[in-house]
Design a binder for these strands. Structure first.
Length: 800
RNA sequence: GCGGGUGUGGCGGAAUUGGCAGACGCACUAGACUUAGGAUCUAGCGGUUUAUCCGUGCAGGUUCAACUCCUGUCACCCGCACCA
């Protein structure tokens, strides 16, 4: 085994001393900006998943340098967050100390893996010089009405004692401790991301994201088109609005359903005879866990409001109103018109409560189930006979608008972003509460608003931030009137710092602005962003939102931050399960580097399977990669001094260059490496190879296993390192052998193969095929119907 | 329920996009060199009744030719989930 320890530390030192990976702000050069998701520096150190995530773009970054690009390939640390804070609570060590220690561990690991990150631009989201600008962006949003406070029911984790966004409490479970989340009323900060829903959707059209990434974002935003319709209350001079995607089914409405907490219920509680029942139902609905609600999907519950009725605006019919938890306050208007004939949920509800079912679309059998397909409109007066859904919806909407009883509307599933956490280890929200002036922004010149030093990180009572206990932090003067005031004590969620970090890499030390515009114009957009699928709906949407906002206020020059986004698949444990400490199937990259070296580790994570799919770790398979690199190393003993390819290798060399180059660009690293193995095996079976033969292999391998490549390059006498050496190119004319073997089939079954000259004449091929002895056996005495010849590929003789 | 993905040897995975299924690697078997081998080299390695036929989750179809296209179906994984 080659001495990887010596070789790897030697070249890591060389690259560092020669500042090989520093991006330069030379705007005359063509640029390439490659971005990987920066890590959360956990105490456990780097995970093999990190290695896989970074190795992918690392290959591209190294290839781009060899292609002459000015490459920006930065890294940093997303260091605010709960694990560090929980660790601080447990051990009473300050998060600052823990974070610094973890960052050092990560940095050492990054260095010993030989990644070509520009370490002069490292950023740390917990550095006040960084979060100064996170706070600055928040204030800009506040100024523009995009950051606001509202009182609502929030997802609250009783265990972590924090308010969670919908994103952080998917499935009703806390994202951090996985305990059940409950609903609690609270004043919270929101970022009005819904205002950007359309812009975020539009922006997807101009970026090159993997199709499933785009789709997930579209689903998350969840745009739906429909209409608001106003329903008057019977006997009361008031009305309420509903949202529907099928206004054309208005004639089929036989009842209304409201979310249990709909405000109009309280407004007219004196008119309601069974208000106690409603209060009781509300209580029960709150108690239901997410699990129960999803399991009991078919079993609709509800209460009829005795005393309130609605009037159908298109036919004047008086219809009953129910409350039910299948209608939610958070979507649409919190009330729906129910068309049981054509909606499964309404159908279930109507069946259970014995409500009329009136069909308005022909087709199906509504005695058995709701009909949700298309068909002829019936029982619908002016819509009768229409068959096209779009047309009937349009006609109804124009009718509603004419009569001023409704209007076209758009709704989104995406909700505003709950933006505060009751935690210490986050960016303080720079807002001051003054009894006279209300909410006042901390003046820009007072940023950063630094976290105060404290020694007790336990959350305050009743879900208050630990900062609320620090009087010297809380008490301040109002910047407007100078009177006594109090600070906001909540901090920002972890998603804040990561929403704009790629901008700061471009100008990491700027203390006057977030980043210099000329530099932003040169480097943006990020050419290629690689990360995990798990961040596609949160981080990726949030950062696109912030970026678009910054564009709108003229701080960044592009609408979209990332031109291209890809994703790596998970590295599973050897048992095929997701790696986790509790399962004990975690692979430590440090140990792999100790035993095999960084190049083997990097090569293996790229070789193990298709990059975008998950793939289990295999302790044996890594040995194969180790053998491969050993073989490459040992080849240097066979090298003879010649600057041209060995003639018999010309074709395979050109083929390999083509395949490897293309595979790298398409992130098909596994097949690229297998091509390099084939070339290595070819060389291995030859007594000697030329310097030129060897150099091609070394250069193609360089992005994957750079230490070894550098060492071999210098071993064969080259003085210049490989970082900026030219990437090999191929000659299209030399990628097919002059003589090749093609298959001969009879009736589609393989019978023989023949050797032909490249681009041989059809007649010659047919003749050779028919004369081959194995083929003869199968065609003798039979009639040849036709012969299919695919040039340089295959011959198929069809006989009867 | 909706959306997306995946199904190929003992294992990880290839297949130029309709053209020799199983590349490359692991594991395994036999041999060589060795005091020794968990090092290295050489050969073999889908199944089989071995000059044969069968094989890419399953059942059909299109085609001279199907892992690849079409129809139906099953299983697993990942999102979202009573979104009106």
């Amino acid at each position: 085994m080659y001495n990887f320890k010596e070789i790897e530390s030697k070249w890591q030192k060389y690259w560092k001393e020669h500042e090989c990976f520093l991006a330069s702000d030379d705007f005359s050069k063509k640029k390439w900006y490659g971005l990987v998701e920066f890590p959360y520096p956990s105490g456990a150190g780097m995970h093999v998943g990190h290695i896989k995530a970074y190795s992918g773009l690392e290959v591209i970054a190294r290839k781009r340098r060899m292609e002459g690009y000015n490459v920006l390939f930065p890294i940093g640390f997303d260091a605010f967050g709960l694990p560090t804070e929980n660790y601080a609570i447990k051990t009473n060590i300050h998060p600052r100390i823990v974070t610094d220690k973890n960052i050092k561990t990560f940095t050492d690991q990054l260095n010993r893996t030989g990644f070509s990150f520009d370490m002069s631009r490292v950023i740390d989201t917990t550095d006040s010089n960084y979060y100064k600008w996170t706070q600055w962006i928040f204030l800009k949003m506040f100024e523009n009405g995009l950051a606001f406070k509202d009182k609502t029911l929030v997802n609250y984790c009783p265990s972590c004692k924090v308010v969670l966004s919908n994103e952080d409490s998917q499935g009703g479970k806390c994202d951090i401790c996985h305990n059940q989340v409950i609903q609690k009323e609270k004043e919270v900060w929101y970022l009005r991301i819904t205002k950007y829903a359309d812009k975020l959707l539009e922006g997807l059209k101009e970026v090159d994201y993997l199709p499933n990434i785009k789709l997930q974002q579209e689903n998350w935003i969840g745009k739906s088109k429909g209409a608001f319709v106003k329903f008057k209350l019977d006997g009361i001079d008031d009305e309420f609005k509903i949202y529907t995607t099928r206004p054309d089914t208005l004639f089929g409405v036989t009842f209304m359903v409201m979310a249990p907490e709909h405000p109009i219920i309280d407004k007219y509680k004196d008119n309601i005879n069974n208000f106690d029942d409603i209060v009781q139902y509300r209580k029960e609905a709150l108690k239901k866990t997410e699990f129960e609600r999803t399991q009991l999907i078919k079993d609709k519950t509800g209460v009829k409001i005795d005393g309130l009725r609605a009037i159908n605006p298109v036919n004047g019919k008086v219809i009953p109103i129910y409350i039910s938890d299948y209608v939610m306050m958070g979507y649409g208007t919190g009330a729906i018109m129910a068309v049981p004939a054509h909606d499964e949920r309404d159908y279930d509800f109507a069946k259970k409560f014995g409500i009329d079912i009136i069909p308005v679309i022909e087709g199906g059998d509504i005695t058995k189930e709701a009909y949700t397909g298309d068909g002829n409109m019936i029982n619908s007066e002016f819509l009768n006979g229409m068959t096209n859904k779009k047309d009937s919806i349009a006609k109804m909407i124009s009718y509603l608008e004419d009569k001023n009883i409704g209007e076209a509307a758009v709704q989104y599933k995406m909700k505003d972003w709950a933006f505060n956490r009751q935690r210490y280890w986050g960016e303080p929200i720079p807002i001051i509460y003054c009894e006279h002036c209300g909410m006042v922004a901390v003046p820009y010149e007072d940023l950063p608003l630094k976290l105060p030093e404290i020694d007790n990180f336990e959350p305050g009572t009743d879900g208050e931030s630990p900062l609320a206990k620090i009087d010297s932090f809380v008490n301040c003067k109002c910047p407007k009137c100078g009177r006594d005031a109090k600070r906001e004590t909540d901090t920002m969620p972890q998603w804040a710092g990561s929403s704009w970090y790629y901008l700061r890499y471009i100008d990491p030390n700027n203390d006057k602005e977030l980043a210099n515009m000329d530099k932003l114009k040169y480097w943006l957009p990020v050419d290629w962003y690689n990360g995990g699928m798990e961040h596609v709906t949160r981080h990726l949407i949030y950062s696109r939102f912030w970026h678009r906002f910054l564009y709108d206020i003229g701080v960044v020059p592009t609408k979209e931050p990332y031109a291209k986004r890809t994703a790596q698949g998970l590295v599973l444990g050897p048992d095929g399960d997701k790696m986790s400490k509790s399962k004990g199937n975690v692979v430590d990259p440090n140990q792999i580097i100790d035993v095999y070296g960084a190049d083997v580790l990097r090569t293996y994570v790229l070789f193990m399977g298709e990059y975008g799919l998950e793939s289990p770790w295999n302790d044996n398979a890594i040995k194969g990669v180790s053998r491969f690199l050993d073989k490459v190393y040992n080849l240097h003993n066979k090298v003879i001094d010649s600057d041209s390819y060995t003639s018999e290798f010309e074709v395979i060399i050109n083929k390999t260059i083509k395949k490897v180059s293309e595979d790298y660009e398409n992130m098909k690293y596994n097949t690229a490496i297998s091509e390099l193995m084939k070339l290595t095996n070819t060389y291995f079976n030859s007594d000697k190879i030329t310097k030129a033969d060897y150099l091609v292999l070394i250069k193609l391998l360089n992005p994957v296993a750079p230490h070894l490549a550098e060492e071999l390059n210098s071993l064969i006498g080259n003085k210049e390192c490989l970082v900026f050496a030219s990437f090999p190119t191929y000659d299209d004319k030399k990628i097919i052998d002059d003589v090749l073997e093609i298959a001969v089939q009879v009736n589609g079954k393989l019978r023989d193969s023949i050797k032909i000259k490249k681009d041989e004449d059809r007649e010659v091929i047919e003749k050779m095929a028919k004369e081959s002895s194995n083929v003869k056996k199968h065609i003798d005495g039979k009639e040849i119907v036709k012969i299919i010849v695919v040039p340089n590929r295959i011959v198929n003789i069809v006989v009867k």
